[in-house]
């Protein structure tokens, strides 16, 4: 018996499967090469119908909330060459309108206890429908550093519920998380989530008092030491696709929601 005859031949079917596996691996490599080519190919760009997501945060300081202007956005745009791939970002500074309003007054000071207009809303700047949520942070800072000795609840930003639902479990004195129950269609804007802003004076205000007696008359003078303190409003708007909504929201926001038609059931948003 020769040595050649002792070698076992692989079955034909096994060989075919192995060839298929190698072929598929090979295609995997070619796929990458094709993707690289597509970037330079006008023909392919024209044929691909990609759906892009984007979101825009708006602010208005008018009495009725009209004239809302975008303050920040983040939109996916194919062909854009940014540091963050195809994400085009703008913005975003809040409260510029309020500062201008204060600057226009005689005292150039924010009036404590006065109600100012502060409307915030979100626009869907995508090519697909989306669900949105907004996290609003408010706190005090002094010399550019966060000052936790001052109570954030003295910054009274008034939230509007209805289609917006505040999640109590995620919210604190400093942070409020609101979910919009309805689908925000392409180009559509949500109802406003805030309308007014009022600053009350810190209870633990530092004051200096001097006493002076002149001709039997006592004069007490009180001066505030807590000058130049700043309050900060910060907002983050998040958007997620509506397709396969329950799984998408769970993946993106970590929330188990239930749907009521195309709307998110508010009861599933108010807690947890």
């Amino acid at each position: 018996m020769s040595k050649r005859n002792t070698q076992k031949k692989l079955p034909l079917f096994t060989l075919i499967l192995a060839a298929v596996a190698v072929g598929l691996l090979g295609f995997g490599t070619i796929g990458g090469a094709r993707a690289a080519l597509e970037i330079f190919s006008d023909e392919y760009d024209a044929r691909i119908d990609m759906k892009h997501i984007g979101i825009t945060l708006n602010e208005s300081n008018s009495a009725d909330g009209s004239g809302a202007a975008p303050v920040s956005s983040r939109n996916y745009e194919v062909g854009s060459e940014t540091l963050d791939g195809n994400w085009v970002m703008t913005g975003g500074e809040l409260l510029t309108g309020l500062r201008a309003e204060i600057e226009a007054t005689e005292s150039k000071n924010l009036v404590l206890g006065k109600t100012y207009n502060e409307w915030l809303s979100v626009t869907n700047s995508s090519q697909i429908d989306e669900y949105v949520r907004v996290s609003v942070y408010k706190y005090w800072q002094k010399d550019g550093k966060k000052d936790t000795s001052l109570d954030p609840s003295l910054i009274d930003l008034h939230f509007l519920e209805g289609k917006w639902v505040i999640n109590q479990d995620e919210s604190t004195n400093e942070r409020t998380v609101l979910y919009y129950t309805d689908v925000v269609p392409v180009g559509g804007t949500t109802d406003p989530l805030t309308d007014t802003l009022k600053i009350t004076y810190p209870t633990a205000a530092k004051v200096t008092q001097t006493t002076e007696v002149v001709n039997g008359v006592t004069v007490y003078t009180t001066t505030y030491d807590y000058d130049e303190v700043q309050f900060v409003i910060e907002a983050q708007a998040d958007g997620v696709q509506t397709h396969n909504a329950v799984a998408a929201i769970k993946s993106a926001w970590g929330k188990n929601v239930s749907m009521n038609g195309t709307s998110i059931d508010p009861a599933s948003l108010s807690h947890n």
């Binding site: 809040l94 000071n109 309050f231 907002a235 998408a248």
Partner: peptide
């Protein structure tokens, strides 16, 4: 899934030299 986000921040200084 398709997701996105955007942030904005603003401050106002209080002058309390009253």
């Amino acid at each position: 899934y398709f997701t996105t986000y955007t942030t904005a921040k603003g401050t106002v200084t209080l002058h309390l030299s009253d």
